[in-house]
Structures are given as C-alpha cells and as structure tokens.
Design a binder for these strands. Structure first.
Lengths: 235, 235
DNA sequence: TTCGCGACTCAGGAAACTCTCAGCCTTCAC
DNA sequence: GTGAAGGCTGAGAGTTTCCTGAGTCGCGAA
C-alpha cells in the first residue's frame, strides 16, 4: 500500500465500545502499517493516551462512561494536544460535531468506508506532523489526484467526480497496476455495512470510465473473473 | 516447488468438518512444504491455535458448533491476530463474506482449485510476515509472471491470459523443469470437484502455446505418456 | 413542497470464457 | 511398416461475467 511507508511511523489509538468496530479498525489500520492500540471506554482511553502517547486518536462519540467530546476535553485540559478523529452516528446533531474541524480534529460518520477513514487519518497526520506538500498527490500515467483538495486531472484537464467515484478512483490509484478483486473494492470503497448488490461496483466503474477514460488510453482495465486494475493498456 | 523454501517455515491450521476436504488440503499443503495441523470444529480450532500458534488458518465458514466468523472473532478477542483464509460455499451471501479482505484476511469459494488456494495463502503470508517486494514475481528463462498485477511477459513482450490459462501457467512456472502429470495439473489447476473431460488440459496447453510459445524456444514440453513440463528445450 | 442530484437497483444484451467434441497428426511398440 | 494409443487443435455450444441505460429512492436546497 502506498501509504505504508509513512504510516508505520505512527501510533494510533482506537476507542470504541463495539468490539466489532474496534476489531475492524484495528485490523484495517494495522494492515495500513499503523501501530494500533485499542480502548473500549473513556477512562481506559485516557489511561492509554497517558501511557502510550499516540499520534492520533480515533474516538467514538458514544462511549459507556463519558462521551468522546468529554474525553477530548480532558485531554486538552491535561495538556495533551493529540489530534482526534471522531466517529459519530449519522444522526448526531450537527451542532455537537461542529467546531471539530477547527483544531486539527475531524469527524467521520458511521457507517464509513475504510478508504474514507484512512484518507482522513492521513490528512490529519500530514497537517499535524508536517510532510512535504507533494505527498498529498497521487499520480499514475497522466492521471493525478490531490487528496487534500480532492481535485482530479487527466492530462491537465480537471475532472469532477462524485464522492463515491472519488473513493473508487482513489483506491484504484493508490494500488495502481495491482489487480484488485471485487471483494477488495467493495470492502474498501463502500461503507463497512454495505449489504447491497455487488453490481454497484460495475455501475461505478462505468461512471468512472465515462469521466476519465475517454480521450486517452483506457486506464481502467477489467480483469475478467477477478476484478479491476488501473494500468496503462498494452499497445 | 519454488515456494517451498519460504513455505516450510510456516505452520498452517486447516479447519473443516468434511474429512475429505481436510485431507485434501492437508496433503496438498504438506506437499507445498507447510507444517500442517487439522481441526474439525470451532472448539478444537481454538484449542489448536492456542497450543500451536499457527501462522495462518484456513477456516471453513460452515462448522458444526459455531461458524468460522465466530471462531475468528474469538481469536481476535483473545489477542490472536493470526490471518485467516475463509472457505465459503458459492451461495454464501456475499455480505457475510465481505469485509474479510480488509486486514490480512481473504476468502476462497468452494469448490476451489489448489493452485488458487496456495497462491492466496502465499499472498497473505507475504504481506503479513513481510518479504522483499520482488517476491511476487516468478521467472523461468525469458518468461516472467507477476502475482500481484497478474501480468505475464515473454522476453519483455506482455501477454494476455484468461483466468484458467493464468492458473495453468503459474503452476507450470512455480514447478519449472519438473514434469507434472496430467493428474497433478488437473488436480491443482482445476476445481477439486472437476469431473469433466480430462482433455481440457490439452486444450489449454494448446491455448498457452499459442500465446507464449511462438517466437522463442518452445518452453512447454510434452512428456508423452506422462504430462507436461516447462523447460528450455535441448539443442 | 418541489426540484435536482447522487447513490443504488435492476434487467437486457453483449462479450468473453470454459469446456466438449471430433478429426487429424505424431509417436511408439511390435 | 503398420496399428494403436496418445496428443493436438479448430469449431462451437453453453454458461458466466460484464456493461450500461433506465428507473427508484432519499436527502438537502430552494
């Protein structure tokens, strides 16, 4: 994974009381190369932060003892300015969440896609701990994607993508040339609880092709019986 | 076997309640150089993991006591993050299986071919326990195959293969110079319950020859009365 | 409320792939 | 040399997989 070289320098603390979410996140982030610790309550989160000094916390807003905002408040009070990525339920009132993006913090709404979450984490780490500015651009052939501005170009020509199209292209791009199975694509690009028809994937591949694969060599290649790959076609 | 040098450092636990599958897998994986243990239920699988600390588990989703997902959940809960390769029936609803490709885990649908299964196992082991990046390439003479991108070249010229052609060539390649019997080829490259005409093999050898064995010394050699071998011809 | 947009579902048709079959060719044993 | 067994390959049927246009649903903006 393209991000691994950067990721494995960072410690991330995941705090959620639902075991399945904790496990999902821990597994996914470890696979991305992060050093991951877990906590399942506000109290244990505070203890873990004091002890392990993570570089970032992924913090569910709903916790059994006190809520995520309270955890963040206590951390700040104790002088810990570790950035926090909040996980919120879809129906959490916006005014509670508002203001989070002002500091270094950000939030992601459940259910989220892993591509989304990992992208957000990398953005926060980048702007918190610094990194050369070019690191937010991913390029393959004449296709370029900027992770911060979410802009996409094919051969200098800017291209507008919807949110789903962007996530799909981004995942293809950071895995350029590799063949990705339908399972991998659905797992990473769609929400973790997406249970719908797997044919969405084909539909979105079709949308993407119409937007980025006209005028220029076709980059999105079907690997029949397996999945898709972003790569230059053979002559 | 090319993979043997790596494989024999690894312990694999196979968990399935069908004896025939267990034996098939155990035999095949032992032959590949893995150190194989067997379990036939969720309970005994958990015990075996605790005792033997395998590097990877091949785990059927359908088990007599509790299902494969539950086994995996309990393992994670107990702090065992051994990667799992799930075996699922073709008709298992996709949404249950999805989510498995996130970490190091993956799944294979029954009936599978052994070549497929072993390839997946090696991919998981490689990305879990690390390995130099070039390890995903297999080469013999001027023939090269990349397991991640599924690209194949003969003397720099890229070659397009269908899924079956790819599996066949891959198996020949990792066994380069060895004579493989038709039985071995059918057993490894085709699904384990393939009951059709054994002449498919000849058909696919024919397809492969047309794609990779024109222009250059003929690498696919017929061993009359036995099978085939991938090797340089004698002058 | 209505409108517009994005996300997803559905279904028909096209394309690709796998496998079977049949006839021909090659090799080997006698 | 000749026959039989083994091997090769072109053609085509059947199936699977994929693509895409059309339509539904839900949400947020006007």
């Amino acid at each position: 994974m393209q991000t691994a070289a950067r990721a494995d320098q960072y410690r991330v603390l995941v705090v959620d009381d639902e075991t399945s979410i904790n496990e999902l996140l821990a597994t996914a982030l470890r696979y991305e190369g992060f050093d991951v610790a877990i906590a399942d309550s506000g109290i244990s989160a505070l203890a873990a932060v004091a002890e392990q000094r993570p570089n970032l916390i992924v913090l569910d807003v709903m916790l059994p003892d006190f809520d995520g905002f309270e955890v963040a408040r206590r951390l700040r009070r104790d002088g810990q300015d570790v950035p926090v990525l909040f996980l919120t339920a879809r129906d959490t009132t916006e005014d509670k969440v508002r203001g989070l993006t002002i500091g270094g913090d950000d939030y992601v709404t459940k259910p989220f896609s892993l591509a989304e979450l990992v992208a957000r984490i990398n953005v926060i780490l980048r702007r918190t701990y610094g990194d050369d500015g070019s690191a937010s651009r991913v390029t393959y052939a004449d296709l370029t994607l900027d992770e911060e501005t979410r802009e996409v170009w094919r051969d200098q020509t800017p291209i507008d993508l919807t949110a789903t199209e962007y996530r799909l292209l981004h995942y293809l791009l950071i895995n350029a040339r590799k063949v990705l199975t339908r399972g991998q694509l659905l797992d990473h690009v769609w929400d973790y609880d997406f249970g719908g028809d797997a044919r969405v994937l084909e539909t979105y591949i079709s949308y993407l092709r119409k937007k980025i694969d006209t005028g220029g060599p076709q980059l999105i290649q079907t690997v029949r019986g397996v999945g898709y790959s972003l790569r230059l076609p053979r002559e």
